[in-house]
Amino acid sequence: MEKQDYIWLCVLALVVAVLPLAIRNDYYIGVCVFAALNCLACIGLSLLMGYAGQISLCHAAFIAIGAYSSAILTVKAGWSPWTAMGAGIGFTAIIALFVGVPSLRLKGHYLAMATLGFGSILHIVSVAAVPLTGGPEGINNIPHLNLFGLKLDTDKHWFYFGWSMAILGLYFALNLIHSRIGRGLRAIHGSEDAACSLGVNTAASKILIFIISAVYSSVAGSFYAYYVRYIDPGPFDIMHSILLVTMVAVGGMHTIWGAVIGSTILTLLPTFLSYVSEYFKEIGFEYTPDYDILLYGGILLSIMLFLPDGLLDGINRLRNKLARFVIYPKKTT
C-alpha cells in the first residue's frame, strides 16, 4: 500500500467517525449503512473489473447467496449469525469457482452474457424455491448480529460497524493490488500473452480474483440480512448487478477508491434528490417525485458522457487544470 492510500484511509475513517454527529435523522444514517454495504460489494467488483479487466453481471446473485445463507441457517437451522456468515462465504466461494471456471474462458460481451445468465437463474431460484427461500414472501425475523457481546440493533451501531467493515475490506483490497497477485492481475489486464509468457498463471489468477470479489459481495449480503432482518428476492435481481457495475464505472474503474466514491454517491443520490425536492416544496415550488428519477438519470448520463473514466479521474483532471493557474513565487538566486 502506498503512503497516499494510508492518508486517504485515515481521512475516510475520520469522516465516518464524525458523520453521525452531523446527521440527526436515523433514516439518513440507515441510507449510509446501505452505502457501506454497497461499498463493500463494489470494492470486490472493482478488483475484478478494474484490475483483472473482467466483467461480471451476477454480483447481486453473490450478495443473495450471502444473504440467504445467513437467513436460512440462522432462522431455519438455528446457527449463530457469525457461523452462518462463514458458511455463506464458503458456499459463495464454491459457487463462484463453478461459475468462474467455465465463464472466465470467455471474454468481453460473452463473459457478460454468461454471468448475466447465472444471475437471472439464481434470482429465479430464490423466487421459486419456496420451501427453502420463502419465495416472494422472503424470510422474516433474522436474528441480530452480536459483536463481542454488543447487540447490533440500532442504525448507529450498524453505521459504525458497516463502515468499519468497508474500511477493513478496502485495506485488504489495497494491500492485495500492491502484492504479487495484484501485479499479476494488472499484467493480465495489459497483455494476457505477455503475462503468461512471464510465468503468470492467467487462468488461476482470474478465477482467484473472481472468487475474492464474490466473497466481498457475499459478506455484504450477510450484513444486509442481519441489518434489515428481513429478506426477499426483490433487491437481488439483475438490475442490482447492473447498478453495482454502474457504481464502479461512475467512480472510476482504475482505482479501488473509485468504487468507494461511486457506490457512496449513487447510494446517497436518490435520498439527496428527494431531500432537495422537500426543500423546494417548502419554498413553494412543488414538483412530482418523477423528476427525481429524471434528475438521477441525467446526472448519471452526464458523468458517463463527460467523465468516461469516472469521477475520480475527473477530480484529478480538474486538479491538474487548476494547478496551472497557481502562480508560484519566483525563486531569487
Partner: peptide, 11 residues
C-alpha cells in the same frame, strides 16, 4: 512481474 511470481508469499 516474473520475480514477484517467484516470491513465496501467498494470499
Amino acid at each position: 512481474i516474473s520475480q514477484h511470481y517467484r516470491l513465496g508469499y501467498g494470499f
